[in-house]
Amino acid sequence: MTGRLSRFLLTALVFGYAFLHAPIATLIVYSFNDSRLVTVWSGFSLRWYAALLENEALLDAAWVSLRVALLAATGATVLGTLAGFALARRRRFRGRTLLAAMLATPLVMPEVILGLALLLLFVASEVLVGWPTERGIGTIAVAHVTLAMAYVAVVVQSRLGGLDPAIEEAAADLGARPATVFVRITLPMIAPGVVAGWLLAFTLSLDDLVLASFVSGPGATTLPMAIFSSVRMGVSPQINALATVIVVVVAAGVLAAGRLVFANGKKTYSS
């Protein structure tokens, strides 16, 4: 179905995309506003970006978030790739339904429930087995791995679904062991999906407020936690500047990931 759009559809398209993108655009514009009052324009200025560089608390939080996200994205990519591989290439095994259900759960489960559940687990396991001794970067990363591996598995599974298993079978028939087939045949073929999954997991971790708030301890404040407590006090031009930096960094990452995902004309985002 191609052709010219009717006036109604064109209007819908323009209105829909304006609704999706205008709020972020206003945020970016006002981050360059000189006035302390966020919504009154009084001239172009970069002062809020300069103030950002001197805000120790925010910079510390950003550093915490970055370390958590690197750990979580890597862990989620390993686990999610294995899970996606198992579901796509093993048609039948005991507990397949349970694995698929457990993987789908974090995609739709309200984060408050998962956050509470994981905190109660950490408290119980500290009493019973002495781990974790303190809640912070480690526990937040575990929570984010659990959330993000589900997304990685979806991306990897759909990538594998579009690939011909005959290539892997040929390698196996020629005597390659399954581990060798996975490393030398499967992994290179699904590499774009794996990279896209890592980026997705990274941004999910960088963005999460609710899970981190539950499972973090007094020592560790992530960037979303710092933003949230500042935003609750009201709008501040510094947060606008920070938001702009995050949006630009993430958009660059998405465009890079998009190139990988749309490479070879393969669609990964068909729900």
Partner: peptide
């Protein structure tokens, strides 16, 4: 399609925050 997916990748917290600046009394 990329333009539909893009905001989903942008920080959720920041997207909600953007509406405070739009809807606030001032």
């Amino acid at each position: 399609l990329t333009l539909v997916i893009l905001p989903f990748w942008t920080s959720f917290l920041i997207r909600v925050y953007a509406w405070i600046g739009i809807l606030a009394p001032n």
